[in-house]
Design a protein around this nucleic acid. Structure first.
Length: 591
RNA sequence: GCCAGCUUAGCUCAGUUGGCAGAGCAGCUGAUUUGUAAUCAGCAGGUCAUCGGUUCGAAUCCGAUAGCUGGCUCCA
């Protein structure tokens, strides 16, 4: 979107000036109204809810007897175009409550919305032709100011977002100043869809999900598994450097363990049914913490031992509702890059800070810089003393300020057992996914009676922090695929280089070169097809392989190799040493 | 789980009003031995997601189930 939207507001409307972002929001919201007006003209018995602007466009929620499908969009768009052509003014009306009720007639959702407006607040309606809607505003002046728009999708949406409420139909759309901008936005959406990890995962042969096995259960193919192995090895080394130790724990545990931890009480709807072993119930783990706690409790701990930082790539299984599963980003079995930090109250602030810094460092290493942080505070229902909550929340906030990343506060968004910091990043089409999480836990240390001996010789309860930096390896891989559009940098690429003989005459030399490079630790394959060189290059390019080493008669004779880069094209002939040197440089720079 | 839509070869997709199941790519075989993004020919590949119904006849119409997609709720 470019430039400020030049819109002058109705003199009755609340003035919002100068800011193009807000003007765009006005335009979007106004277009939502026009869409609602169009729907009311075309359909009978329309119950209206709300139609706000969103980050990318707008939507309006309706309840109507007809079921809307994208096939209905052209008719709605035509009706909207008529409303725009009529250039109707948006008129603001301020009315009393009784009059408002009368105006709303049989609009049940609107009447409920009206009841929510505080007594001291003005009640306003906006009229646009014969369409009138309870609305705070503001709006653009006239419908004629809406130049270009398009309806994109329709989906169900619970009234007020509550699962127990009726489901409304939500129609999404976009609006811009010119048709060209709409086309541009649609092209961007298409481009984003091309880097969807589900599409690339199939095309690049990275992973799969199978009906025969079950939804949300990921199969890592050789190439995906190779990338995963590199990620995990890097992760382990970074953790050792950061003062962590590694743990491995079982996949199942007795019911009693999950009772003590509280999971059977507060997390059972996400846990799979138990299995009977020797007449005892065992559960597959949805989390790793109770196991780490057992290790902690395996002997007495002193304040001199703390902090303990224990990490595990722990595979957990959680029941997720069928409708929420999404490629690698939302699955039922996944490996968390989990860790638990046990420390004294004095250490907590420093530990949180280094954890946040560690997380950002990790994200930077993988090429991510745009991350949003959220500080989630104490919810209404919570365990733990108020003073602890306060100290914990303060140290989280302090850490965010010290590392200087902007954050939003999610008031009351913490878990019942402690406050947390979440780091979120966006997928190819702008959906935000929670990745890193740093969570305090006041619940389990209490339930498991965790203790350490303090300087005073007395037993104290340690602070416990759960943290996952990448979140889960599955989700991280999904986001990574989209981030690089499948073209992994050399250090992560499952196949770093492919040797392409011009003809079969160079096959022996090609196999020998690949063997040499493989022995030196590079991931290299030979193209053994009978294709012409152009086709071999195309195959390698489509497979997004960073380097192609082309061997013709000349190269074999001179002991050189013609190097082609995925991004820069033909780099010309060079010695094998020069070529491997280039690989080494790219790997070191994580290019 | 809820609302809506979708499901045809390994992949991407055609398939008209209910009347013999199709293409490209990939695969295999053969020919070609090629100099920086697709060599040519042939062959093979299907319980049209599954189950049931309507019909003389169903990929096509109806119902159920499963999976997927877009959202909602929930979450790493």
């Amino acid at each position: 979107m470019t430039g400020p939207v030049a819109i002058r507001l109705n003199q009755n409307a609340l003035f919002i000036g100068g800011n193009s972002h807000l003007d765009l929001a006005l335009l979007r919201h106004s277009t939502a109204h026009v869409m609602a007006a169009a729907v009311c003209r075309l359909y009978k018995d329309v119950q209206l809810d709300i139609g706000p602007s969103t980050e990318g466009g707008f939507y309006y929620d309706f309840d109507l007897p007809a079921r809307l499908t994208p096939e209905d969009f052209p008719a709605i768009e035509r009706e909207m175009a008529k409303l725009v052509a009529e250039d109707l003014p948006f008129e603001r009306l301020e009315v009393g409550r009784d009059e408002a009720r009368a105006l709303l007639g049989g609009q049940r959702y609107k009447l409920e919305r009206l009841a929510d407006i505080p007594a001291d607040q003005a009640i306003s309606f906006y009229r646009c032709g014969d369409f009138i809607d309870l609305c705070r505003g503001p709006h653009v002046e006239r419908t004629g100011q809406i130049k270009a728009f398009k309806l994109l999708s329709v989906a169900g949406s619970y009234y007020r977002g509550l699962e127990t409420n009726p489901m409304l139909q939500r129609v999404y759309g976009i609006v811009a100043e010119t048709q060209a901008e709409i086309d541009e936005q649609l092209t961007r959406l298409e481009e984003a869809q091309k880097r969807d990890h589900r599409k690339l995962g199939k095309e690049l042969d990275l992973f799969s999900v199978h009906d025969e096995v079950g939804p949300g259960l990921i199969h890592w193919h050789p190439k995906g598994a190779r990338v995963r192995a590199i990620i995990e090895e890097f992760w382990r080394q970074e953790h050792f450097k950061a003062g962590y130790d590694l743990l491995y724990s079982p996949h199942i545990g007795k019911a009693g363990l999950w009772e003590t931890s509280g999971h059977l009480g507060f997390y059972s709807e996400n846990m799979y049914a138990p299995m009977q072993i020797d007449e005892v119930s065992y559960y597959v783990k949805p989390m790793n913490c109770p196991f780490h706690i057992q290790v902690y409790k395996s002997h007495k701990r002193s304040y001199r031992d703390l902090p303990l930082r224990w990490a595990e790539l722990g595979t957990v299984y959680r029941y997720e509702k069928a409708g929420v599963l999404h490629g690698l980003l939302r699955v039922r079995g996944f490996t968390q890059d989990d860790a638990h930090i046990f420390c004294t109250p004095e250490q907590i602030e420093g530990e949180i800070q280094r954890t946040v810094e560690f997380a950002l460092e990790m994200w930077r290493a993988f090429g991510f810089t745009e991350i949003r942080a959220y500080l989630a505070t104490k919810p209404a229902k919570a365990v733990g003393e108020a003073a602890r909550w306060e100290q914990a929340t303060r140290s989280l906030e302090q850490a965010l300020r010290t590392v200087n990343i902007p954050f939003e506060t999610d008031e009351g968004g913490g878990a019942f057992y402690g406050p947390k910091i979440d780091l979120k990043i966006k997928d190819a089409i702008g959906r935000e996914w929670q990745m890193s999480t740093i969570q305090f836990d006041f619940n389990e240390p209490e339930r498991f009676q965790l203790a350490y001996h303090g300087v005073d010789g007395k037993e104290h309860q340690p602070y416990m922090v759960h943290r996952a930096l990448l979140g889960s390896i599955e989700r991280f891989f999904g986001v990574l695929i989209e981030h690089y559009a499948g073209a992994f940098p050399l250090w992560l690429a499952p196949e770093q280089a492919r040797v392409l003989p011009i003809s079969d005459k160079q096959m022996d030399a090609a196999v020998a070169l690949a063997a040499t490079l493989q022995a030196a630790g590079y991931r290299v394959k030979v193209d053994r097809s009978a294709d012409k060189i152009g086709a071999k290059i195309r195959d390698a390019q489509v497979a997004k392989i960073p380097y192609m080493f082309i061997l013709g008669g000349r190269e074999v004779e001179q002991g050189t190799v013609s190097v082609r880069s995925r991004t820069a094209g033909d780099l010309g002939s060079m010695s094998v040493e020069a070529a491997t040197c280039r690989l080494g440089e790219d790997i070191a720079a994580r290019r």
